[in-house]
Design a protein around this nucleic acid. Structure first.
Lengths: 256, 256
DNA sequence: TCTCGTTGCGAACACTGTACGCACGGCGCA
DNA sequence: TGCGCCGTGCGTACAGTGTTCGCAACGAGA
């Protein structure tokens, strides 16, 4: 729109009247925060492959290349966006009423909710890694480490334990998110999608009895229920494993 | 271009000699297998963002658009590539000498090795999901389900247990792979990269004591050792959790 | 020998990320 | 008040991208 204003100005109205002047130009400043926020909106709405600098620019009422005054790269923009999203996570502190396991469970569910809210994160995490440490990522990691430490892990083991839980949660959540965004792109509901998929795979699974067994137990539950139960089951097993390890530590036996 | 070549040919060399003939044209048939294999080579060498249809075409001595005779899409190509890589996994069967836990460990290590061999898989898995079932993915999943089943999980729980292990392994391996490919792109060695990173983050971690603690325990080990130990620790905890669950099942108590 | 389906491929289109240089507005200083 | 400068927006341009379309050439079958 800025373009049309300008060409109209110079072509149709060469006279420099006050009224046809370039328009006070608004000059409404862009800001990095604004850009990141709008990028999140666009990503949530249309997914990762629809994020282009030009589209983002016009959404902000700005030219495409204006963004580069506030952001070095598209890659840098994505890093900022990732950290922004990590800022949404709720990692509770361990208190008298909330033991470490409950705190860990809540944090895990917060991560999963984040992945479902922003399914494009799945495609982005594999590219950017988890290590590009924005302030929010750092803060969250610190608080998670705190939960693990209060569980009773010594400093040299806490990092390992944290990585165990986090890997499970991220692995499950990103798989789930990737699947959901795949479904969304297909335009079906989740149940339709699963039906069409099992229909196609029925022939293939004939000589794959185990998979067939697994799928038969899902009757009568919504797909969302299943996903939730699956997540919780794995999470409880991981935490069980860590608690078991704590037990062997306190009784003096050093496990492998 | 073809037009100019052709006119040049017919103009400068109107005689239809055997040697000046249009070239037997080679016509060396492309095949889907060839294309996928070359794509894997290119991905391994230069990473995901260097995979373009034109580049892949020229590598195969073919025009860019010729590939579309054998592959519908770039997306479809990537699906094929993913399945191809899954075909590399070694998932042993449970035997008398190899109990389920050992078989699971070997499978897990095979997945991790795959992710390190092909770090671009990390960026791709988040986009394509794990569900786009090529034959190799199906076969592997079936064999993993088999391992879990022989562990003693009933049909309705086996799927949950499988998902737990798989999520952890995928989560860890993709994080690791993403980190490694990030390092590779930076041109440093892994140790240099870590050093530069901790240097930058030193100021930030001052008020984040837990993170600082964690990092101090890594002295005297190579980065590769650390990654390996971390992976193994989490894996053992997940398997511990599943074994614990098996115990509560056999003694009759139904856990939450 | 002729025809037909299959395959390769050049040209073209709509987009992408991004470098460059110009124009403009507000701010500090004379 | 005037002036110059710096930060900002943005038009233009370039090299690449995925993909479509239509043409040309080939091998096989009639």
């Amino acid at each position: 729109m800025a373009a049309s204003e300008k060409t109209a100005r110079s072509a149709a109205q060469p006279v420099a009247s006050v009224w046809t002047r370039p328009r006070p130009k608004q000059r409404e400043q862009l800001s990095r925060e604004q850009i990141v926020a709008e990028a999140v909106l666009l990503l949530d709405a249309d997914g990762i492959e629809s994020l282009s600098m030009r589209k983002l620019g016009t959404r902000l009422g700005a030219g495409a290349t204006s963004l580069y005054r506030h952001v070095a790269n598209k890659d840098e923009l994505i890093e900022l966006v990732v950290d922004e999203i990590y800022g949404e996570l709720e990692v509770p502190a361990v208190t008298g009423e909330l033991n470490w396991r409950e705190a860990a469970v809540r944090s895990a569910y917060s991560v999963r909710a984040m992945a479902i809210r922003h399914p494009w994160m799945a495609s982005v995490l594999g590219q950017v890694g988890l290590v590009h440490l924005g302030p929010n990522v750092l803060r969250m990691t610190e608080r998670l480490a705190d939960i693990i430490a209060t569980a009773g892990f010594a400093a040299e083991e806490a990092d390992l334990a944290l990585s165990a839980v986090f890997s499970y949660v991220i692995g499950y959540a990103t798989s789930e998110a990737a699947q959901l965004s795949l479904i969304a792109r297909s335009g079906m509901t989740e149940e339709e999608w699963i039906a069409s998929l099992t229909g196609v795979a029925a022939a293939a699974t004939e000589e794959l009895p185990r998979l067939r067994e697994g799928h038969d137990n899902y009757r009568g539950k919504t797909a969302e229920q299943i996903r939730g139960e699956k997540f919780d089951y794995g999470l409880q097993r991981v935490l069980d494993g860590l608690e078991f390890r704590l037990g062997t530590l306190s009784t003096g036996g050093a496990a492998k």
